[in-house]
């Protein structure tokens, strides 16, 4: 089995970095050896889930505090890709956010639902010094 590729990035807690991180996810989609599906679609989806998860960490968990940081860890093998986004907030009930039915014309509440739709496994783990949103796609 091939070794896992790991990309570990820490950026200031500012939304201007959403595009930077999203594009790293897109690039990784084109370098995955084991993936046999539509790479262009996967690239868009990885960009999207990274953007949603990072925006959630920056704007909600870390309350837009520019002095905080957000860490993103992407690791991939020939069978799966896992994204971890670390925040320093109070945590939230991700299952409740995922099943909450937003009205069709609601302005918000779609980010976590999009992540659940596009990734195969999603967990939000609360730890002593923060939280981790972990999202995995299997090939």
């Amino acid at each position: 089995m091939s070794r896992r590729v790991k990309v570990d990035i820490t950026v200031p807690n500012q939304t201007k970095y959403l595009g930077v991180i999203g594009r790293i996810g897109e690039s990784m989609a084109y370098s995955l050896k084991g993936f046999r599906g539509n790479r262009r679609e996967l690239a868009y989806h990885l960009n999207l889930v990274l953007t949603e998860a990072l925006a959630n960490a920056i704007c909600h968990a870390n309350r837009c505090d520019p002095d905080k940081d957000v860490r993103v860890l992407i690791s991939a093998s020939d069978r799966d890709l896992t994204i971890k986004v670390f925040d320093q907030g109070q945590g939230f009930d991700i299952e409740a956010s995922a099943i909450r039915k937003a009205k069709s014309n609601a302005e918000g509440g779609r980010g976590i639902q999009i992540i659940f739709k596009l990734m195969d496994r999603v967990r939000y783990i609360q730890e002593e010094d923060g939280n981790v949103l972990e999202m995995t796609k299997y090939f």
């Binding site: 959403l18 999203g22 953007t51 918000g108 980010g111 999009i114």
Partner: peptide, 8 residues
């Protein structure tokens, strides 16, 4: 590219 904030 558009995310949930753009849609919102």
């Amino acid at each position: 590219f558009i995310d949930s904030s753009g849609l919102g």
